[in-house]
């Protein structure tokens, strides 16, 4: 591998590539900034995706996994579609999120907790449960924000758009077996 020539430590780079379908394209990044320029939440990111890629190249594991950028990804796929090198940027953001959670490096817990609350319902019922999510997540995370959001939830219920009871699929045990197997295959 010619990339491993020199004294640069590529362990982190290789780890990121390994964990991302099509991730090999990352090494061809031109640093053109199309991703950062296209990103709807780019202004809120501490590092643009382009910068993260260079930081990955430089082996800055700690700084990358502490970045808020992956958590601000709205998965609009603009970056990935426009990238002149066809780097799967959205998928890389998912990879960085997974690595950050496992390394327990991302400080702000809102975003990871939203994901885990969501997943919790999926793994219990096989379906997502909006009412449950809204109450559980918001009560623990932003009780103050509920002041504004509360009446909206109420209106959704009134308009018959938020069932109050979760629906459980019949094959929930089968689904759990599948998910558990998948996780153990990935070594999680």
């Amino acid at each position: 591998m010619s990339r491993s020539l020199g004294n640069k430590d590529d362990a982190f780079l290789n780890e990121v590539i390994e964990a991302t379908p099509g991730g090999e394209a990352l090494v061809t990044c031109l640093q053109c900034g199309t991703c950062g320029g296209s990103c709807p939440s780019g202004p809120d990111m501490d590092h643009t995706p382009r910068q993260l890629f260079q930081m990955i190249n430089a082996g800055m594991r700690q700084e990358v996994l502490q970045s808020n950028a992956p958590w601000y990804c709205v998965t609009c796929y603009y970056c990935m579609t426009r990238c002149p090198k066809q780097i799967p940027i959205t998928d890389l953001m998912y990879t960085l999120k997974r690595m950050a959670v496992r390394a327990k490096l991302y400080d702000d817990s809102d975003a990871p907790d939203w994901s885990s609350s969501f997943i919790g319902f999926v793994e219990s019922y096989g379906r997502s449960f909006e009412f449950g999510l809204a109450t559980r997540y918001h009560l623990t995370h932003s009780p103050l924000r509920k002041v504004g959001v509360g009446p909206m939830g109420l209106e959704m219920i009134v308009k018959d758009r938020m069932p109050l009871r979760p629906e459980r699929i019949k094959g929930i045990d089968q689904l759990r077996t599948i998910l558990d197997t998948a996780k153990s295959l990935e070594g999680v």
Partner: peptide, 11 residues
């Protein structure tokens, strides 16, 4: 024209 000014790192 929207772009990332890559030398600043800002949109």
């Amino acid at each position: 024209i929207q772009a990332e000014d890559t030398l600043i790192g800002k949109q």
